[in-house]
Design a protein around this nucleic acid. Sequence first.
RNA 1: GCGCUCAUAGCUCAGCCGGAUAGAGCAUCGGAUUUCUAAUCCGACGGUCGGAGGUUCGAGUCCUCCUGGGCGCGCCA
Length: 588
Amino acid sequence: MAIRQLPDRGNSMETFQEILGQKMTEALDASGLPQAGAVTPATDARFGDYQSNAALILGKQLGENPRAIAQRILDAYDLWDLCDPPTIAGAGFINFTLRSETIAAHTGDLLRDERLGVEKAATPKRIVIDFGSPNVAKPMHVGHIRSTVLGDALARIASFLGHEVIRDNHIGDWGTQFGMVIYGWKHLLDRAALERDPIAELVRIYKETNEKATSDPKVREAVREELVKLQAGDPENFSIWKETVDLSLKEFERAYQVLDIHYDIQRGESFYNDRLPTVVERLLKSGIAEVSEGAVCVFFRDIPELGEKPAIIRKSDGGFNYTTTDIATVDYRIQDLKADTVWLVVGAPQILHFKQIIAIARREGYTADFRHVTFGSILGEDRKLMKTRSGENVPLRDLLDEAVQRARKIIEEKNPDLSESEKVDIAQKVGIGAVKYYDLSQYRMTDYIFSWDRMLSFQGNTAPYLQNAYVRIRSIFRKAAVAVPLWGALDGANPAKITLITPEEKSLALKLSQFAEVVPSMLNDFRPNLLANYLYELANAFHSFYEACPVLKSEEPARSSRLGLCELSARVLAKGLDLLGINVPEKM
RNA sequence: GCGCUCAUAGCUCAGCCGGAUAGAGCAUCGGAUUUCUAAUCCGACGGUCGGAGGUUCGAGUCCUCCUGGGCGCGCCA
């Protein structure tokens, strides 16, 4: 979208929620009542635009009639002509209906604000976000979608809110599987196959070695020795390991290009290797860890849910495991990266593990805020974990290719006149956007059933539906003789005059003003689906407006006002989708 | 056995701190277009929110128990 650079107006804009909330605070003070509840958007348009349940809460606390309290509040309430006189309804709800002029003026302000009304966080934090975490020598698969897409969206949202974000890919590049890989590399490797498809060949040698090791104790022993040699720093094994890591990183990077997801740092498990002995010694010295059955363990006897479940940080054979690595990772992120908070976007099965890690961090005196952001699984049509027909994980590469192909097919049916380069671009944006949006639009904890038809549908809460709303707007501006009639106004010199006549215009404008309320709320519980819901409602409101209100054919001043609504809708849609990591095409 | 998590319309899913008659999309049925992209819009039909208690002015939401699914629980990651 060709947005001219606008001035950053900082935190000068307040949302209606904040303004009304402030008014409520003052009114409660003036009434001699304690503070209670927040002003929220109305649960139903019939009740107005916003509501307060303060009187209900206070009625309970004070043992008085809620409606009487509501009246007492309203008697002290100064609305500054912001809305119609508030009404008391039901058990004691206070309903606010904003005046059209109020919303119109606010919409004009939004058109002049680069941040679309979204305030920056009052206290910016340095946040390390750990997401993605694929394993070396294995293909990325469908199981990586949720962590990768969710983590990226959270990173985009946090950045937009003014936080300093460090995206870290905690790659699985160390561990017992390398005994297999190195043995396979030495005995089974097909160099030509490796050239053609490195990951496929690495998987093949891993699998074949695994089979041999299962049936042949000699191979099993040889595999173990290769691992020991690698860990001891044997030059040959180290260089094989390094090569597999490099090949894998190259492969991951291809997926990240397609997904338009990028990391600030990629600290794999191997990065922490030389820190592990120190970690164990330190924990032993401080008494946090103790030796049990030959292993070094941390017990959590004071935490009921962890009581019977110690964390092993050094095995009885002297080796370290991933718990040790993750403790070293905490050290690095807090001490070296100076993080205020760490978000671990890792699936729910590891809840116990991260509870242990976080508990250990607490005992070590770390005060940073650690959040384990969990999520459910992706299921196939059979409601079981999504697999290929042969029972394997679905490779991410195949899945993304198919998304783009399917999108392309739909576009060719619906809009065959597009040029080849346009089709390529649109198929990419629609296909990848559909996959991401389908994931992000659902509550992260629920398992969801993967369905091409549903995610690529142009109806309902899907990326194509939202992208289409944007495309329609862009089409209006292409049709308009003047390419960017409002941009002058956007500089602030000559603001577009917004007038809201029809109900569709008013509800669209109100919806647009609420972007600034929704964006910050997402980080309360890491819920991008709240933004997705909002964008769907916005696109819906826009489409209703589009049906009811001709833009280019209408007379001034409605025409300019409606163009302004279109422009702001496009910007909010594009920005909202961008925060979810989704791009918008100009045509489709 | 212990722990985490989920259960909402025929299907897929929303429902933030407890708030008004539980919402969408698909499917089914009925309308709107010589179009600013109908790829859309408007409407109808469809629910004992897994079950049973409890907390209170009010529970899909909080507590207890039960049923069912998924996942995890000392030397894999």
